[in-house]
Design a protein around this nucleic acid. Structure first.
Lengths: 338, 338
DNA sequence: CTGAAAGCGCTAACAC
DNA sequence: GTGTTAGCGCTTTCAG
């Protein structure tokens, strides 16, 4: 590869002048600049970002570390991040932690080693990885999940409140024995949503029955298995609040396979929209999250922190919206077609 | 941040020795090595990958440039890449081109500038971006789509053959007027699948009617609109072969909204599996692609090319499988539940 | 087995 | 307005 010295020699200027042209610094004689540009073209010169980054001690890459690349919630969020990043002159590299603290740690290592300009992360259980970033003074924004003992900018949704509304909606629709499929114990969103579920029950004078709570991984299969287990209970629950989009899908599949009618025999509310919801019958009542906005907000926060590393961290909570459709309203029955 | 010099000073050795310890080179006195490790821990030393990359003129990052991060086909593929990369000591950074040659070009620039160790790319129409990588001698594997005038390792599926089988299946199921929703003109997979569709018609003595072919973007909305347009034709088509997973979903939504019964009034075969297919009624007949294997294969090829940059490029074609379900078989009617 | 020293490609003082 | 030069942090000959 041609270097800046090759270009300088060919254009008969100094490397400094080439650098100025490359970086668009003012005060370069137009004639010289033109000579430099010609030389660059002739040599097919491409600046070496590695060298530049070393010299400047900074880069223009953001790492976005997400828990599940297969979950549309996270990919939608990434789009929001990307759009802001692009506008601010950063490139986004996406890292999939699979909710595994070890894999996450590796990506944090990489972000640190590569001197990434900033990191947006939805942390797996353990706060240690996030804290390593903070200690290294890497600008970081935590998204979707709050980590205890972490002082960082954070973007969340009103999980507990939304879960309470969703559960209340099931209660008000006349369901009696409402179960909850939540996520893994250590995951923030799972805990919060369970809390909301519980609060709704209690404020309506309903007993909280631990047997009706299932902890699934936040994947389809987890939802399926949890639902299957719930179906063995006697008396059987007659409604379910599912803690994320994929568990909702899994639970629905289980109900289809078991021939349980929704919403007649089983009411259903999910958290976060399910993709291709239009094709699912009955249409699903869900707590809709502003996924794209979540990404945008996190990216804005990251920009601001990079510009001003010393300001106090803030937490932004965005609002969700309960989308009432067919799966949670008795009297509406199964059907397909227009 | 602590540098290798700080560690050297503290451990009372030379920077070279620290470097040897960090990189696990043999032949370092165990006592010295221990002193170095202690010093690293005390100073919370983290190697600076930027400096290392500059010195070594190589990195341990792979870029995977995909056309649509919202399409499960691509995210599944990425998982295959990741697993191989991890085993080979590389990290994967994901870049979403949105099938836009401009955005793609930016990511190619970034990959070039950052001296990425290799690139896996599903190219948008234009071959120029891929050729820039090749000219710069960056190891590159083309995936999912073939680019003309590009000599690079390539991993594909048997698009044309699969499309032919899928269309033949519709013919043999008794459908008479079979339409095709394919992708944008310039996209390789769209062209190939259209070709297969056409071949099936011709080898069964059916006329090829251009009016029955619709070019949609490979998104849900494209499929919806194309289907809507097809429904206005008189006589109306009675079956559709849809060229990718999202167009299939879109087309199905349109049929649901229009009250057209599948498979009775309209037969349907899609290309690539639709996620949450179990929830979709009727269950969809699709051409299943080995997505994960596609990613693995591309990653293996990239490994090999990095190890041996001068070997001749090869093209690997993986086989798909026609999964016959309910949407393409008359006599099976709409239903829901187990 | 260890250390000294050069240099990867670029940028930014600083000098002219 | 332009050139000279030091040095970002690391690895890797080469000497010893």
């Amino acid at each position: 590869m041609a270097t800046i010295y090759d270009v300088a020699r060919r254009a008969e200027v100094s490397p400094a002048t080439v650098s100025r042209v490359v970086n668009g610094h003012a005060n370069v004689d137009p004639a010289l600049a033109e000579r430099v540009r010609t030389a660059m073209r002739e040599l097919n010169y491409r600046p070496n970002a590695v060298a530049r980054n070393l010299r400047r001690s900074r880069t223009t890459l953001w790492a976005v570390i997400i828990a599940d690349i297969g979950n549309p919630f996270f990919t939608a969020l990434v789009r929001g991040v990307e759009d802001v990043a692009q506008g601010a002159g950063y490139s986004v590299v996406l890292c999939n932690s699979d909710d595994d603290a070890g894999k996450e740690g590796q990506y944090v290592d990489a972000a640190l080693a590569e001197q990434m300009a900033g990191v947006i992360i939805s942390p797996s259980g353990d706060a240690a990885n996030v804290n390593r970033l903070i200690e290294a003074r890497v600008p970081v924004v935590v998204i979707d999940r709050q980590a205890d003992d972490v002082r960082a900018d954070t973007v969340l949704v009103d999980n507990e409140h939304a879960a309470e509304l969703a559960t209340t909606h099931l209660i008000e629709s006349g369901y009696q024995r409402i179960a909850c499929i939540t996520g893994p114990h250590s995951v923030f969103t799972a805990d919060q949503r369970l809390l909301g579920y519980r609060r709704a029950l209690e404020s309506h004078g309903r007993p909280f029955d631990p047997e009706l709570v299932r902890y699934a991984d936040f994947r389809e299969q987890g939802g399926y298995r949890a639902m299957a287990a719930l179906l063995t209970l006697r008396p059987r629950p007659d409604a379910v609040f599912a803690g994320n989009n994929l568990t909702t899908v899994g639970a629905m599949e289980c109900l289809v396979d078991s021939g349980v009618q929704v919403p007649g025999e089983m009411g259903m509310v999910g958290f976060d929209d399910v993709p291709w919801a239009h094709l699912v019958r009955p249409s699903l009542t869900t707590v809709a999250q502003p996924t794209y906005e979540l990404g945008r907000t996190a990216a804005d926060l990251l920009s601001q922190r990079i510009a001003n590393p010393d300001r106090a961290p803030s937490t932004i909570t965005l609002n969700t919206k309960l989308q009432i459709r067919d799966s949670s309203v008795r009297g509406v029955d199964l059907r397909h077609g227009g």
